[in-house]
């Protein structure tokens, strides 16, 4: 997919040292448009939507906030810890405002696997279909999110071929 100059500018924002020390792309050398398109296809293949994935991440985070910093049980078989550190980050896609540095760790006690995501991850997935580049410390694999967070399949999105970041 052809990448627009606007997306070039966003990709520059994602480089190490601009917004975060390590950036959002890890060792991924692909164009941002290709990263978005690839993950969009994967999410479609899994029968999910970016909005649905973000909604589930937000739902578990909100349930975990009740532990006020400690891990807490969330039905049916999750253990969720929500914690935050000092600071806020802007969205590399240029949205106004800042996102609190909040980490949510979800352990699926039935499957024995866990995953950690940030509030910025939730925003970038729901708003832009962006899961970070391969090799990034905060890269999230859609298939792992589906399995660990037990995300049910969603009805097909209005434009299944186009991730929100490219719409």
């Amino acid at each position: 997919m052809k990448q627009t100059p606007e997306m070039d500018a966003i990709q520059r924002q994602m480089r190490p040292g601009v917004i975060t020390r390590d950036g959002f792309l890890g060792s991924d050398a692909r164009k941002l448009a290709d990263i978005l398109e690839f993950d969009n296809a994967e999410v479609n293949r899994l029968g999910l939507t970016h909005e649905g994935i973000a909604a589930r991440m937000r739902e578990l985070r909100d349930a975990g906030r009740k532990g006020i910093g400690l891990a807490t049980r969330v039905d049916p078989h999750f253990e969720v810890r929500v914690d935050s550190v000092r600071g806020k980050l802007p969205c590399p896609f240029g949205h106004a405002g800042l996102v609190q540095k909040m980490n949510t760790t979800v352990r699926n006690l039935a499957g024995g696997r866990e995953i950690t995501y940030t509030d910025l991850n939730i925003h970038m997935i729901g708003g832009h279909g962006f899961y970070e580049g391969r090799g990034s410390a905060f890269r999230l694999e859609p298939s792992e999110l589906k399995e660990i967070l037990e995300i049910p399949e969603s009805p097909p999105p209005p434009s299944p071929g186009m991730p929100p970041g490219l719409r």
Binding site: G17, R21, R86, K88
Partner: peptide, 11 residues
């Protein structure tokens, strides 16, 4: 400074 000078902690 808690963020090492990235402008993300405001300290």
């Amino acid at each position: 400074s808690a963020c090492g000078g990235r402008g993300s902690c405001g300290l």
